[in-house]
């Protein structure tokens, strides 16, 4: 049995290690691609100095850097959202999309891509896509938040979210049935997720929503810890359940909705990362898990995005494929090898 001091030291060093890994992966991710750019060149460009080849600057600043930054924040948000929901529903296989948020987004993206709706943004196809996805995700979220105030049982809420998802999926299926092949391909690729093509305004928007939500989640770490004991204990310790419910669902849904709107549904990060962090950190204490999950989510998504670009380059694989291929075996390995006490 390790002492508390050792355990804390180990947890801290894991956090630092993940952070360093994120920096390394990000730099590598910026450096490789159709044109390889050396790390010193990247550092000079980032610090504003001129380099020999003046095409490098725009490639990094307009394409690769926004994408990398979006990947980091996207992964962090998804993983955090997964952690919040797993604790809230006291269920280890809950993930950010369980509440139907992504299905709502998918339906509305389907309306844009397949049905030709533009939501009043005719001239801006990328923003139209985003607008549709965001609107769809938010609509489902509003339904769920509203339901969360009405129903007493948390499991019922979970089921309402899932059913909302099913209904959206059904309508999406109707759309696909009538869609033509070309459009369908685009839609299917979108629905597997990708961080490609992020622009600076999108990155700003992502960080503008992500950062406050992350801070809010930190503030919630104490009630989240109480929630580990179950609803009854949490109330008996003085937690106001009504407020807590709305805030948790709001944070999780807004984060998921934003990511889904920009990058499509990216499976598995929200499910796998909380488990990985819990087991490697050896704690259920959310004051440690929240930073851990944010960093690990960013790292995992960064690595997966890199793989998606590299493996069959120049063809880019959908991100969801990689996250599932990498995430699932890791979760199974961790659960099998550390069998006890890993419920939540």
């Amino acid at each position: 049995m390790e002492s508390i001091k050792n355990r804390k030291a180990r947890q801290l060093s894991i956090l630092v290690l993940i952070f360093v890994a994120i920096v390394v992966v990000s730099l590598y991710s910026i450096s490789v691609g159709s044109i390889n750019i050396s790390i010193p060149d990247i550092l000079s460009i980032l610090s504003g100095k001129a380099v020999a080849d003046d095409t490098f600057g725009p490639i990094i600043m307009n394409i690769r850097l926004p994408r990398t930054l979006a990947t980091i924040m996207g992964g962090a948000c998804l993983a955090l959202s997964g952690l919040l929901l797993q604790i809230f529903f006291k269920n280890p296989i809950v993930e950010p999309y369980i509440l139907g948020v992504s299905s709502g987004a998918t339906l509305f993206v389907g309306l844009v891509l397949l049905g030709g709706f533009s939501f009043g943004l005719k001239s801006l196809p990328p923003m139209g896509l985003f607008g549709g996805a965001f609107l769809g995700a938010m609509l489902v979220m509003v339904v769920v938040v509203f339901a969360s105030q009405k129903v007493k049982n948390i499991t019922t809420l979970l089921i309402i979210g899932m059913m909302a998802g099913f209904i959206c999926n059904a309508f999406t299926s109707i759309l696909t049935a009538f869609a033509d092949k070309e459009q369908l391909h685009g839609f299917v690729m979108w629905s597997m997720g990708s961080f490609s093509g992020f622009s600076w305004p999108q990155v700003q928007f992502l960080y503008g929503i992500g950062c406050p939500m992350i801070i809010l989640a930190f503030v919630l770490s104490k009630p989240l810890n109480a929630m580990l004991f179950g609803e009854n204990y949490a109330i008996s310790m003085g937690l106001s359940m009504k407020k807590f419910r709305v805030v948790v669902i709001l944070i999780a849904s807004v984060l998921t909705a934003t990511i889904t709107a920009f990058a499509g549904p990216i499976s598995f990060v929200g499910l796998a990362v909380p488990h990985m962090v819990r087991i490697t950190m050896g704690t259920s204490d959310n004051r440690i898990l929240i930073p851990g999950v944010i960093l690990a989510g960013a790292l995992m998504t960064g690595v997966c995005d890199l793989c998606a670009r590299m493996i069959l380059s120049p063809i880019e694989l959908p991100l969801g494929v990689i996250t599932a291929l990498i995430g699932a075996p890791i979760v199974v390995y961790l659960l099998v090898h550390k069998t006890k006490g890993n419920e939540l």
Binding site: N225, G230, R278
Partner: peptide, 30 residues
């Protein structure tokens, strides 16, 4: 209160669990 329901506090230590009793007495970060 102490309830009969099983709690899944797997990876919390005994000290951390007892500490949660300070919930109503500590600040928002615990």
């Amino acid at each position: 209160i102490v309830l009969t329901e099983q709690v899944s506090l797997g990876l919390l230590t005994v000290f951390e669990i007892a500490t949660m009793g300070r919930y109503p007495h500590t600040n928002f970060l615990g």
